[in-house]
């Protein structure tokens, strides 16, 4: 069996007295779409942030391609962050830069491409998320859903191996939700590994390969989308049906 691309081993995280993660173990396989599911405050987003080094676990390891990223400093994490991209919940676009400048940002920082090549890549990325022609607009000129799609375009522009999505479809209209899910599936076809944090059940079962259910700081259930949907676990069933937190 192939070695997982990301291995989370015994990760614990505390915020003061609050236990966010209590010895989490999780493998993420290359090319799969894994969804982290759980109630509010169950530590899904903290786990997602830990996978790119935005949060440091208090205990345990996170191995990316065999390298423990919890031991790396900000400078050493740069190489990891070129290979793992993060899509923020509300896009987190730089509001003082145009859309084109937002997308060009990682290219200017990490590549030696010419201005012409950067423009081409920016245009292609915007086309991919269905927002061609919006290069000169400011983030404030776009709707929330469009901003998130630009956030996805910025994340994929360096052609990362892994993309982490923090609630990519929460609060979006059906059109924008479909657009985001289409992008996730398109990227899967290109071999990109995706990890999603979401509460949106229809999204989970539409695109995901596996689902991890977080409860009380632990992975309470892990399985394929079908296994999770047809679960006999009363707690999980209650969560999916919206009867319990």
């Amino acid at each position: 069996m192939k070695k997982p691309l990301i291995e989370v081993e015994g990760v614990s995280k505390f915020f003061g007295d609050k236990v966010v993660h209590d010895g989490i173990d999780l493998d993420i396989r290359k090319g799969e779409i894994l969804t982290l599911m759980g109630g509010s405050g169950s530590g899904k987003s903290v786990l997602l942030r830990s996978l790119i080094g935005l949060e440091k676990p208090d205990k345990g390891k996170i191995l990316f391609d065999g390298q423990d990223i919890t031991k790396l400093g900000e400078e050493q994490l740069v190489d990891v962050r070129k290979r793992i991209a993060y899509c923020f919940q509300y896009g987190a676009l730089f509001d003082s830069l145009t859309i084109a400048e937002n997308l060009a940002y990682p290219l200017r920082e990490h590549t030696k491409l010419t201005d012409g090549e950067i423009s081409e890549r920016v245009h292609a990325a915007l086309e991919q998320v269905g927002l061609g022609g919006s290069e000169e607009l400011l983030p404030s000129d776009l709707s929330g859903g469009m901003q998130r799609r630009v956030g996805v375009a910025r994340a994929i522009i360096l052609k990362p191996e892994v993309i982490l999505y923090d609630e990519p479809t929460t609060g979006l209209d059906p059109y924008n939700t479909r657009q985001i899910l289409r992008i996730v599936l398109d990227l899967k076809k290109q071999g990109v590994t995706s990890v999603l944090v979401t509460h949106d059940m229809s999204s989970i079962f539409a695109v995901t390969d596996r689902v991890a259910f977080l409860k009380k700081g632990k992975i309470a259930a892990l399985g394929t989308a079908e296994e999770i949907r047809d679960t006999k676990n009363a707690e999980l069933k209650g969560f999916i049906l919206g009867e319990t937190m």
Binding site: R49, L54, D79, R81, A85, F88, Q89, D95, Y105, P106
Partner: peptide, 12 residues
């Protein structure tokens, strides 16, 4: 608005 996190996540 998580722009500082975005700067870090983009490797800067």
């Amino acid at each position: 608005t998580q722009q500082i996190d975005a700067i870090r996540a983009l490797g800067t």
